[in-house]
């Protein structure tokens, strides 16, 4: 072997070592990250037997929380979709002064600490709140009711939907709307017949994300709606409450939320791949 061949061989060995180290390093990093995320979830799942899980499901606290959470999160998601879809479309398609400001305000609950959101909602809709006082004078109390749970959920989960919906509308080529207009279609028929079906998957994904966020809402709900079983005690609140006495109920609720989270993630990933385009 001459000196040139020797140098080439050394260089090749170095490259192989670097590739092995890089692969090993990446593997270790990913494994550590997965362990960090999966261990607490597995710890929770292994902490309860299937029998105890089933038995806890009939516990009134668990059942009430489950029914209330699913009901309120469903209503909140419907409200979010109805309010958020036109706003997302307008912000995606039309340029108006203050659009960025509107976007920022809609995003605000994303970064606002939930406790602050709860207190803010109380100041707005509580008995002495700037809006709530008028309702209270008319005999309508909002705070510490199921309606308050829904308002808190809409407040914190709205940006999840609007962001996803706006991104979906922006990704849709404007040529479809232009073609519809050139064929004689006005704005609303174009929106319902052409635009909505083409971004349907993105909107469903956004709605599911919002539903999941609403289901997991804790801070704003406990501040604004309280923690009353059957009325305002949603699953996260029930987990917090039962953890101090009946750990099985607490774990059962947590496992249900984990299952829902998994299902949500799968559906979102599946849906986001499915919008029909050329």
């Amino acid at each position: 072997m001459n000196s040139v061949e020797g140098l080439v061989e050394v260089k090749r060995l170095r490259q192989s070592c670097r590739a092995i180290l890089l692969t090993f390093g990446t593997g270790v990093l990913i494994t550590l990250l997965l362990i960090f995320i999966v261990t607490p979830i597995l710890a929770l799942l292994f902490r309860i037997s299937p029998d105890r899980f089933c038995a806890s499901l009939s516990d009134p606290v668990v059942w009430d929380a489950l029914v209330l959470s699913l009901t309120t999160a469903t209503i909140s998601t419907c409200v979010i979709v109805l309010l958020g879809t036109p706003v997302a479309w307008i912000n995606a398609r039309y340029c108006y002064s203050g659009r960025e400001f509107v976007d920022t305000i809609i995003d605000l609950p994303l970064v606002l600490p939930p406790a602050v959101a709860g207190l803010a909602l109380l100041m707005a809709f509580g008995r002495m709140g700037i809006i709530g006082r008028y309702f209270y004078e008319s005999g309508i109390s909002i705070a510490f009711t199921t309606l308050a749970v829904i308002i808190a959920q809409v407040f914190v989960a709205l940006p999840f939907y609007v962001r996803q919906a706006r991104a979906s509308f922006e990704q849709l080529d404007t040529m479809y709307e232009q073609a519809a207009r050139s064929l004689g279609s006005t704005t609303l028929p174009t929106f319902f017949i052409i635009v909505l079906p083409l971004v349907k998957s993105g909107l469903i994904a956004g709605a599911i994300m919002s539903f999941a966020r609403a289901l997991g809402e804790f801070g704003a709900t406990i501040m604004f709606a309280g923690n009353i079983q059957g009325r305002t005690q949603t699953m996260p609140l029930a987990i917090y409450t039962t953890m101090q006495g009946d750990l099985n109920a607490s774990i059962t609720l947590s496992v249900i939320l984990i299952i829902i989270s998994f299902v949500v993630l799968f559906i979102v990933k599946f849906k986001l791949r499915r919008d029909v385009r050329f």
């Binding site: 479809y176 232009q178 073609a179 050329f278």
Partner: peptide, 11 residues
């Protein structure tokens, strides 16, 4: 109007 990429409604 026939667009360059046709803009047929795919759904």
């Amino acid at each position: 109007f026939v667009f360059q990429h046709y803009a047929l409604f795919p759904h």
